[in-house]
Design a binder for these strands. Sequence first.
DNA 1: TAAAACTACGCAATCGTTCTCGAAATTTTT
DNA 2: AAAAATTTCGAGAACGATTGCGTAGTTTTA
Lengths: 340, 340
Amino acid sequence: MYRAATIKQIAEALSVSISTVSRALSDSHEVSAETKRVVREYARKINYHSNPIAVSLKKGRSNSIGVLLSDVASSFFSQVINGIESIAYEKGYHVIITQSHDSYEREVTNIGHLASRSVDGILMSMSSQTTNYDHVIGLHNRGLPVVFFDRIINEMETFKVTTDNFKSAFEATELLIKKGYRNIGHLTNAAQLSITIERLNGYKAALETHHIPYREQLVKCCNHGGRDHEEIEGVINELLADELKTDALLITSDRISTAAMRILNHLGKADSLTIIGFSNSDVIDLLSPKISFIRQNAFEMGQIAAGMLIKLIESKYPVYEFETKLLDGELHWRGQSKIK
Amino acid sequence: MYRAATIKQIAEALSVSISTVSRALSDSHEVSAETKRVVREYARKINYHSNPIAVSLKKGRSNSIGVLLSDVASSFFSQVINGIESIAYEKGYHVIITQSHDSYEREVTNIGHLASRSVDGILMSMSSQTTNYDHVIGLHNRGLPVVFFDRIINEMETFKVTTDNFKSAFEATELLIKKGYRNIGHLTNAAQLSITIERLNGYKAALETHHIPYREQLVKCCNHGGRDHEEIEGVINELLADELKTDALLITSDRISTAAMRILNHLGKADSLTIIGFSNSDVIDLLSPKISFIRQNAFEMGQIAAGMLIKLIESKYPVYEFETKLLDGELHWRGQSKIK
DNA sequence: TAAAACTACGCAATCGTTCTCGAAATTTTT
DNA sequence: AAAAATTTCGAGAACGATTGCGTAGTTTTA
């Protein structure tokens, strides 16, 4: 097996102590300029790189951060990862990504894995199946920095970043109303998720503002987040019932939107519903039927979350002032006004 | 700062030696059943978890693997990552993902980062800008296991997994021919990439088999891989020149396909070209214009690559027998026959 | 010129494990 | 009953770095 160079080898070769080599390489003032020169020259010559694992052990830090999200194979999350990575890279941190696939069990085991001291902090977006937060709260109480992004929770005080979901849902719903739609359905994620609640509230508020009565039958939570085709199929069929007169849809995720579109296409009713969906797909403009969308600032969300976490990790003193940052979504209209 | 429990604490609490605790926890035969019981019970009680960093330092292994690919925000690569993760998780490895964004410089610095002894092996798909392989070959020669997936290179002997690109391109081209198309353009990636070469060869072979002359003007390498809209626009315009009579397109990536479709839509010529694209998009069926596609077994590719790498890492003896595994692509036809 | 301060370096402990040796205590063999 | 083998455990040296402390040798201060 290949063994890399160590400071011990340098020390022996140059007949100085290990401490001196260590100090020379870290540019300590306790070593002369000449010695530094010699040590560095030799280190470079034998291609020395400090062993991050040894440093981690000694310093009690690993210079890596763990990310826990539901699925990397999603345009939104992969853009977030991109943002996280850009900041982490800049600050010298490794990023370890784990996926919950929206399963509570996987979330618990993954966070345990990450936490067993191999990461300095965790970036987390809740699984849609999670209703008990002890696994996170416990770690956080024991001193592990945690920052939430996207799907946040109120049960913990820390830094959080998410889209201004209320506002985005409000604006989208209001836009539909202004375009003449009155019977707007709402297809959304698991009911306990923060994003679900906030968006539902935005939807309700827009209806109220425009004096449209809220009807519970028009709101459908998809607990499998669009993974289960039949769930969506059932829901769409319910919404298409004549008595509801559904004429538009506000959908909260790419996966649900595309599932719904697929079903509408199949039913030959693609044009019977106008859709606005939360979407970060890069081919949204090519989809048929046409769909309007709210784009989240996923990349920026990743950057901000990573920045917050690293700030927490590197803070010398305990932090008690936290912030929940809300990012604006961008609403893009590609639909038609309802003919009056 | 929070400090986790150590075997030393257990040893002191139970008045046994550190060695005994270590052995008890690793189920060594050198410790009595009773002692094991006591130690484990106490370990569980104080929520002990072994410190992976200390173990890494001692064993000279980190139990993590590095992944180097161009972009996670791609359906193909994110599916590969999923596959990698599933195997790595199972075998107790962490996955560290880095992105080259198809830049040679980033590839070099990233692989350097990964290699400075923090990973046990590397899973790699070449950046499209890379033409010099010294950075990988050097590390490999020094003993770091490397496995290539998707975009492989011939300059290194090791395990490799990729789609049978020749076959897939051959089948796709042949299918177009059988449907009556004779002037098939080929939009592809950077010329030196393995996937580019193999697919181009498949394309050529299909033409030859069916006695259609190969025309160089119909083949366009997109060096920016679809990232540069104008590059694709120029290329599409060239292919649409009357004298070429282009009637179909074989495209090698999602990004290029969607860029091309966007341009065709904009030109109002969406129906003038029949497209088959290599695509792992999960909304391919919703895209307009309709596009036929070759789906790669991305998840399986990730699994196989990770399996190969871990096998290499854990092998007690140097490995000299390597394999290049080719996966079948699945061809899906959604187009129309050409009216004769 | 003696005392104080500073420079430049080495020694050794430490981080949390694993693992080689050696050695009691017990059991088996002869 | 003595010798040999086995079981069970502890001491201590690694792994590769960082860092507090001690101390020659030199320079500055009083």
